[in-house]
Amino acid sequence: MNLPVFYERREIVTPGDLLAEDDYVAGDNTYKKDGKIYATRVGLVGYENRKVFVVALKSFYVPYVGDLVIGKVVEVGLGSWLIDISAPYPALLRAADAINRPFKPQRDDLPSILDVGDLVMAKIVAYDRTRAPLLTIREPELGKVKRGQIVKITPTKIPRVIGRQGSMISMLKRETNCQIIVGQNGVILVSGKSPKDEQLVVMAIHRIKEEAHTSGLTDRITQMVKSEKGSVESA
């Protein structure tokens, strides 16, 4: 099978660039018109069997059921909270979900559980684009974020932070002894024993953000973290 392809793998493309013709299938961030596949975002092209896709270099989060997200409470309602999950739509967290029993306005005081400005770790349980996405915190590790630092990156770069089979994130955890929780919406929570450790992870994530489209990233980040750690310890 020798079908026309116009770019090499991992080459940078811009919206409207012609990626492939005829028998290919349009994957992420592409569209098909008159048998031709074009890119819709700035990103790196990929070809997988007959599928053509673009890994976007910048995008925003679109909710997906089952995703772990970290958001900020923006409004306390009568029986629910509105949470900004850096998506086009604000998400809803029901009061009954947070208090393990039916919600009674005369008994339960919502701001004392979660107030405006609090950070929440939650999972998306329902989303269909016609209503606001619905969140839950009814799992052991979910709920209000009490300590740590927040780093934001564009959601399409999350796979780079995690690395192949978690290679990047496990290296960062091992080298810095920090707990790192990655929200699929591009918000990352870093909590460690000392602010210095956390700072190191934040630096590493910023570097990943800058160089997400290059190869040999894990090696460079490992090197950076090790040398930075060395300089901190000797100082």
Partner: peptide, 11 residues
């Protein structure tokens, strides 16, 4: 628009 990551048919 392209820099904001908004999907576009073309520039």
């Amino acid at each position: 628009l392209a820099d904001a990551g908004i999907p576009m048919r073309s520039l």
